[in-house]
Structures are given as structure tokens and as C-alpha cells.
């Protein structure tokens, strides 16, 4: 699960940071008059920066092409689901949703096929986040009034998926949810 990996990487990096800071602090505590400071600080600084720059550069060039805006761009979706978010419910329909009398229907989606969610909002900003059966966030987009965001995804596992609102939208924000089935 990607989130656990992210947490692990973070904890390792945070641990390294703590160790380095503690080490530097301890070296100051032990320092006497004769051992003065860091040798060649400018050179070390340069290398430190260069390594950081290269690492971040690699990271950026690897991750940016995988951004959701570029995913499945060349394929035609097998199914399209219209989503209208409103305080405090999601309306899902395979037909277009009329903002004047919005109504939805239960949704069933095919597994391993490309699905496109066309997400908009009828009132304020909402989040449209899809959670799998183990309650892990798998993908999301924002529901913004006046705009339609197209979220494309292929569901690998059949089962029930939950939708939660991930943008604070008022007093019943935490109760705003829906679901669909993948077969």
C-alpha cells in the first residue's frame, strides 16, 4: 500500500534528520578549543546542495508524468459516471444530471475497465475521494462549481467502494458519502 510506504519513507527521513541534529549538537558539547568547526564548509555545502538537487530532480521527473492529469489519456472509457456533489450528498448517475432536478441511481462498474467520473458541484467546493474495501484512499479529485473534472480510473478489485467528501463543505461535511459497486 502506497500510503504505508510514504509513512515509512517519511519516518526514516525524519529519523535521519533527528540523528544528524543530535550528532551535531553532541559534537558541539564535546568540542574543546582545539577542534574548531567544520573543515571546508563551502565545499561540503556545495556537494550537499548538488546531491539534494539531483535527488529532487530525479524525483520530479519520475513522478510528474504519473500525475492524474496524464493517466489513461489515450484510451476511451468503457463507462462514464456523472457526479454532482451537493451539500451534503453525492449524486451519481450514468446519465447526465440536471442541476435543476438532480437525481441519481445506484452505480455498478466493470472491473479492469477504464471508467471516467465527470465530477462537478452544484453548490460549494467538495472533494470526491474513492476508498476501497480496506478503507484506503485510492484516488480523488475536487468537485468545483462551474467546472467538470474528469477522473479516470481502472478498478482492479470487485467489491464495494465508498466515496467521501474531502473538502470541508459545512456542518455535515463528515457525513457526506456515497458508494458504488465494481463487478
Amino acid at each position: 500500500m502506497q500510503q504505508q510506504m510514504i509513512l515509512l519513507v517519511f519516518l526514516i527521513l525524519a529519523g535521519i534528520t533527528t540523528v544528524v541534529f543530535t550528532y551535531v549538537y553532541a559534537s558541539s558539547k564535546k568540542a574543546g578549543q582545539e577542534k574548531q568547526g567544520m573543515s571546508n564548509p563551502l565545499r561540503k555545502r556545495f556537494w550537499f546542495l548538488l546531491i539534494l538537487f539531483v535527488v529532487l530532480g530525479i524525483f520530479a521527473s519520475v513522478t510528474i508524468p504519473k500525475s492524474p492529469y496524464f493517466l489513461f489519456a489515450d484510451e476511451t472509457p468503457k463507462k462514464i459516471v456523472h457526479v454532482s456533489a451537493m451539500q451534503f450528498a453525492f449524486i451519481l448517475s450514468e446519465k447526465a444530471i440536471d442541476p435543476k432536478s438532480p437525481s441519481g441511481e445506484p452505480i455498478e462498474l466493470p472491473a479492469n475497465e477504464l471508467v471516467e467520473f465527470r465530477v462537478t458541484s452544484l453548490d460549494v467546493n467538495h472533494g470526491f475521494a474513492i476508498y476501497d474495501q480496506s478503507n484506503t484512499l485510492i484516488t480523488q479529485t475536487q468537485a468545483m462549481p462551474g467546472y467538470v473534472n474528469r477522473l479516470r480510473h481502472k478498478f482492479k478489485e470487485p467489491g464495494k467502494y465508498n466515496i467521501l467528501c474531502l473538502e470541508f463543505c459545512g456542518m455535515a461535511h463528515h457525513g457526506m458519502r456515497s458508494s458504488f459497486i465494481v463487478k
Binding site: 492524474p68 492529469y69 489513461f72 462551474g146 467538470v148 473534472n149 474528469r150
Partner: peptide
């Protein structure tokens, strides 16, 4: 021509 744009305005 199947050129995908992740969004459009209403």
C-alpha cells in the same frame, strides 16, 4: 480525436 483534457467548464 481522443485528445484528453482533464477538465472543461460548464
Amino acid at each position: 480525436n481522443n485528445i484528453y483534457s482533464p477538465t472543461y467548464r460548464l
